[in-house]
Amino acid sequence: MPLPAIPRRVKIGDAAAFAGITPRAIRHYHAIGLLAEPERGSDDRRRYGYDDMIRLLWIRRMADAGISLDDIRAGFEGATGIEQSLARLEESLASKAAAIEAQRAAVHRLREVGSPLGLLSPLVSSRLHDLPPGALRPADLDTLLVTERIFGPLGAAVQADRFIVLATHPELRAEEDRLAEAEKSLDDTMSPGDPRIEDLAAQRCAHETALAVTIDRSGLDEALDNLLDQEDEHTGEEEGGARMSAMEAIGKMPYDFSPARVRYEERVIELLHPADQDGGTPEAC
């Protein structure tokens, strides 16, 4: 059986098709010195021979492996330092592989949980996954998301106890809703010195104290300790983006609080943590 006609040289379109790249890529290789300009035919078009095609095939394989064009050129030229470039590439690929695996795990949790709760860290989502549908409100998830960003998965897991108690104690949820509605009145029309601020802060303090007592009696703290023993490797691994201190993060998270609302929040902290106030006298809510 006779062989088909075998060309001694081919045009750029045929070379690109065989190598699995584009003519534009080949022209770019010429421009950066990665591939020498070939001979031209009588029509002044480039013609590529066997050695050119071998070079193109190796370029394609190395590029597919993630090696930069500069490093490919250095490798062809026998330049020193290529090993360091390859080591950096390997580290980068390992990091990308870890990121992809983390994404797959997040998608799996999201599908398994069936709500945005699955996008939080495993430490938090596993803490709350047994709650009935609708027990966690969108605002609760928003709060956990912010807390996880500021204080990490452990901080959000601790805060999750609060939402477990609210979801399982209707009287505490009702009081939480009542206080949240009352706090909306602390707008720009109210003076920071309004006596209603003190009264509402005392009510919030009493509510937070009742929540803390319920959490303590429920044994949730002990359950969290057990969970941490089992999943310690997850703490600190789930945070995306650059890490920052809690104070830095708090300073970058905007809240549309009026001066009255700011004073109210300060007063609640003072009532809940009297020992932290310089020279303060312990107060009761």
Rank of each mutant, 00 (worst) to 15 (best):
R27S: 09
D64C: 06
A36L: 08
R46G: 06
P23L: 12
G280R: 07
A36F: 02
G20A: 01
I12W: 05
E181Y: 08
A99P: 00
L271I: 04
L117G: 02
R61Y: 06
G240Q: 12
L56T: 00
D177G: 11
V10Q: 11
M253A: 07
T214H: 10
A260G: 11
E248T: 14
L119W: 01
L271H: 08
F163H: 13
A275Y: 09
R88W: 02
L154G: 01
Q230W: 04
K252H: 13
A79W: 05
M62V: 00
D187P: 03
P116I: 00
T281C: 04
H234N: 11
I164T: 15
E266Y: 02
F151L: 13
R261Q: 13
R27M: 07
H169A: 11
L227E: 14
A275R: 13
Q103H: 06
D44S: 15
V10C: 11
L211S: 05
L200G: 09
A284I: 07
L131F: 08
R173H: 12
D199S: 14
K11H: 15
A106S: 10
I67W: 06
R137A: 08
S92L: 11
I26Y: 02
Y255M: 13
F151K: 06
L136W: 03
A99T: 07
E208G: 04
E83H: 06
S191C: 06
E176L: 01
G13Y: 03
L69P: 04
L224I: 01
Q103C: 07
A275T: 11
H273M: 15
D44G: 08
P133R: 04
I82Y: 04
A65R: 12
D14H: 14
